[in-house]
Design a protein around this nucleic acid. Structure first.
Length: 351
DNA sequence: AACCCGGGGTC
DNA sequence: GACCCAGGGTT
């Protein structure tokens, strides 16, 4: 099936491929870092993170030894923070078991934390020329349109079938280039949401959905589950020029990141004052500030904000909170984007 | 197999 | 508002 398409794809890719940072100095480590960052994340968003990450952590050893706070700071704003934690776990395995070098064997790569079939295939094929497919969302969309797949591309079974087909029919050489050509095609030509640029497609003549004029019906994909809504009250608690933050739990959403103290539900002024006093803080002033909304994949936060000025007293310590200024926050405390609306309050001086 | 895990671009 | 993004881990 695909042996006819490999040649035009490879020729097209050689001419049309984008110049991307991770294609310049394609060591196994660099490819690995780029593939993890690119999981569910656009190329444009990754570029700046990629350069800074490798500047700070140029080797797998450096990654293995990095303090988690610094690691999260390098990932701050990228999302899916378990990606970088798993990458560090894998780095430690590589240092201990493989003498600091990424193994070239597909199954050994696949065993590493944070690496599934797609990423293992990408690293093995691009870095080492191993004949393994790398099936991502781009590739599934291309295949579904080429073959008029009625299968749901969101299903695990569909991805496995794609991997099986591509592994059988992959060219003998150029596995990495072949995989990248399919992804590049999906990313730049065979675009989602019924907006393909078919006139630029090197394998247009084999595309069944184009032939039948049904391209907008593919790929078939099952709907997503509805988002739940969570209401929160976010507190900007100021003591002198410092603001209260706290560390989130080690598991779950935004694990290990820092946040402004917040409570479930929309609290009244009286309830907020009760909460603040319970933390052994003495409020001097309280005012309502703007509401904000942040949308995650499965949750929507609807946030109500309060600004509270508290007495500068060391008599009683607040156990849960850390008081930091804006500079400390930006240098050492990774915070999710969800609170970005409220970060500007850290600029304000004591009134 | 279903659900969790971010953030942002695009239509 | 819906969809999607060089997906993987957990249950």
């Amino acid at each position: 099936m695909f042996e006819n398409r490999a040649k035009p794809l490879l020729e097209w890719y050689k001419k049309e491929k984008r110049s991307l940072p991770w294609r310049e100095d394609a060591t196994p480590y660099h490819i690995w870092v780029s593939e993890i960052m690119l999981q569910q994340t656009r190329v444009e968003a990754v570029k700046r993170y990629y350069a800074r990450f490798l500047e700070k952590l140029p080797t797998i050893e450096a990654l293995a030894e990095c303090e988690e706070e610094i690691l999260l700071k390098l990932w701050e704003g990228l999302g899916y923070y378990n990606r970088v934690k798993n990458m560090q776990k894998a780095a430690k395995v590589i240092v201990e078991k493989y003498d600091g070098e990424m193994p070239s064997d597909y199954d050994k790569i696949l065993e590493l934390p944070g690496i599934g079939s797609y990423t293992a295939g990408a690293i093995a094929s691009i870095a080492f020329g191993v004949r393994k497919p790398a099936v991502d969302g781009n590739v599934l969309r291309v295949l579904a349109r080429q073959e008029e797949w009625e299968k749901d591309i969101a299903k695990t079974s569909t991805k496995k079938e794609a991997e099986y087909i591509l592994e059988e029919q992959m060219p003998e050489n150029d596995a990495g280039e072949f995989n990248q050509s399919l992804m590049e095609l999906g990313a730049t030509v065979c675009l989602p949401n019924g907006m393909p640029k078919c006139e630029k497609c090197p394998i247009l003549n084999c595309c069944k959905s184009k032939k039948h004029g049904t391209i907008e019906q593919y790929p078939k994909k099952s709907g997503k589950v509805k988002r739940r809504i969570e209401k929160k009250t976010v507190l900007l608690i100021q003591k002198q020029e410092y603001f209260a933050v706290r560390k989130r739990p080690d598991e779950g959403l935004l694990a290990g990141l820092y946040e402004f103290p917040n409570q479930e539900g929309f609290l009244s002024e009286k309830e907020v004052l009760f909460f603040v006093e319970k933390q052994n803080l003495v409020p001097i002033q309280i005012k309502k500030i703007e509401n904000a909304k942040h949308i995650f994949s499965h949750v929507e936060w609807q946030m109500q904000g309060y600004f509270i000025l508290v007495e500068d007293t060391e008599l009683k310590k607040s156990k849960d909170f850390i008081f930091i200024d804006k500079e400390e926050a930006s240098e050492n405390y990774p915070m999710p984007s969800a609170f970005s609306v409220y970060k500007k309050y850290m600029d304000k001086k004591l009134e």
